[in-house]
Amino acid sequence: MERVPILKIGDILLVSIQLDMSDQTAVALQEDLAERIVATGCHGVIIDITALDIVDSFVGRMLSTIASISKVLDAETVVVGMRPAVAITLVELGLSLNGIRTALNVERGMELIAAAHADELDYQLDDDPDAETARP
């Protein structure tokens, strides 16, 4: 069985799906990613599906599951590069990919993760304005 490679770039895990995945490969990717998120402590996952010419309900469900799992592990998942024909087909199929954030390409996906991460830092500072001074 083929496996999808997972790359680490800074604080982000990048998965670029380049092959027509069998269901087993998709499930394996789900498991591999969960392990890598924990092992690396990354806060962002980008799944690039530019090369996928179809996304069926199985792959759709895998994407949703990855997003949920990574959320539990404190990482933001962004799916990028969905082709127009794939998006139109998914709408017709009735698959809404709830809970998944999407972006047009890897670059925009990285911006999205950076923005989400910056927000989180803001909140932390807002919640605890004296964090720095209170520290011994």
């Binding site: 010419d53 179809i54 996304v55 069926d56 082709r83 127009p84 024909a85 794939v86 139109i88 087909t89 017709e92 199929l93």
Partner: peptide, 9 residues
């Protein structure tokens, strides 16, 4: 292209 994608899906 869209119809190809639909039928393959």
């Amino acid at each position: 292209l869209v119809d190809q994608t639909k039928v393959v899906t």
